[in-house]
């Protein structure tokens, strides 16, 4: 295999702001290049990206190629694919393309890899070098196992899980240069009709000191009641859930914690019947103290917990509440039979 040396980082931005994923990508690319920025270039695509390009070059200390796509207001898979393919083809020594493992990178990176015949490794959250070969780590089987992947192709496309590789805030770097170029593109078959704003109301979960979260182990809607009752044990608490629980309609989507939901950092996070897939875990890593309850001793959630309890939540939580009543009930915690309104 030819030893190629160039790393291209595809910046992520939305609504005129640099997304934090971009800094994670920079941190990853630096690690991949032994801390040296010489062989790295950051590509920024879009309309009106002057200020974004300067900000990225300034903070990263890495050269930026600002690719002006006049009229491209947001993200477009069609434009990203055609423009990136054309720009990167010029780079004869292209070894790595680093894209964010978010709604943009997950959308265009595999197609870009297919176009280049390049290996594609998704959701990279670890990297190590052994005998001159890079091994890229990623979660498989819901995070129960990590896989060590190697690439056999001269160019490799990677999507990098956010929140894993962090740019050192103390890092001193002289700003990188900005090269400006114009890209012609045509939007043929995909028409962007705008963004429908969701979110906003997050049912007080972001402010809660204690978050009691339910996963698929809940089993059925009727069992949500014990989650609400457990939450009532704690002052300033809120009930949240995984994507699956919200998909089932057991909780509204504004209570979903994870990559496609909210990110929370309460003092205590109680994970009830949650398997612990990375999509969920990314949303609660900042919690102060984590208790996980799950029937599966090997649930990935236990790797993210301070206290692990192998029990069925549907029997364990009622028992816990009963014992609490007996042993701690000086201030008479009211039982809430059927008049629970915290479900939102």
């Amino acid at each position: 295999m030819v030893n190629k040396t160039h790393t291209a980082v595809i910046a992520a931005h939305a609504d005129g702001r640099v997304l934090s994923e971009t800094w994670d990508l920079v941190a990853f690319a630096l690690q991949l290049n032994g801390g040296r920025p010489e062989n790295i270039e950051i590509l920024v695509l879009g309309d009106n990206i002057d200020r974004l390009a300067e900000e990225i070059a300034g903070k990263s200390g890495i050269d930026v190629r600002a690719i002006f796509c006049t009229g491209l207001t947001g993200y477009s898979s069609e434009v990203y694919l055609s423009v990136l393919a054309r720009e990167l083809e010029k780079q004869a020594d292209l070894a790595y393309v680093c894209a964010p493992h978010n709604s943009q990178g997950m959308d265009y990176a595999p197609a870009l890899a297919a176009r280049f015949g390049a290996a594609c490794i998704s959701g990279v959250n670890g990297i190590f070098l052994e005998e001159g070969t890079f091994f890229f780590q990623k979660d498989i089987y819901g995070g129960k196992i990590k896989a060590n992947m190697v690439s056999h192709t001269a160019t490799t496309v990677l999507t990098i899980q956010s929140g894993v590789f962090k740019l050192d805030p103390e890092r001193q770097a002289s700003p990188g240069g900005v090269v400006r170029t114009d890209a012609r593109f045509a939007i043929d078959r995909t028409r962007f009709l705008g963004v429908r704003k969701g979110g906003g109301d997050c049912a007080g979960i972001a402010e809660a000191r204690v978050v009691v979260a339910a996963g698929r182990g809940i089993g059925e809607l009727e069992n949500m009641e014990i989650i609400h009752r457990l939450a009532e044990l704690f002052p300033k608490s809120a009930v949240a859930g995984t994507r699956i629980v919200c998909d089932q309609g057991w909780l509204p989507y504004n209570r979903q914690v994870g990559v496609t939901g909210m990110t929370v950092a309460p003092d205590l996070y109680v994970a009830c019947g949650i398997s612990g897939a990375s999509q969920h875990v990314m949303g609660m890593r900042g919690a102060g103290f984590v208790v996980a309850i799950n029937t599966d001793r090997q649930a990935a959630m236990f790797n993210e917990a301070d206290i692990c309890i192998v029990e069925d939540i549907t029997t364990f939580i009622p028992l816990l509440l009963e014992i609490y009543q007996q042993q701690y009930n000086d201030n008479a915690v009211p039982q809430a039979p059927g008049n629970d309104t915290s479900g939102g």
Binding site: Q137, I145, A147, M149, V150, H152, V290, N303, D306
Partner: peptide, 20 residues
């Protein structure tokens, strides 16, 4: 196959992970 899964590992614990 342009890439390979070479080996698998048990993920490291990110927290204390004390089993009660």
């Amino acid at each position: 196959a342009p890439e390979d899964l070479v080996s698998t590992i048990v993920p490291p614990k990110m927290r204390a992970g004390r089993h009660v």
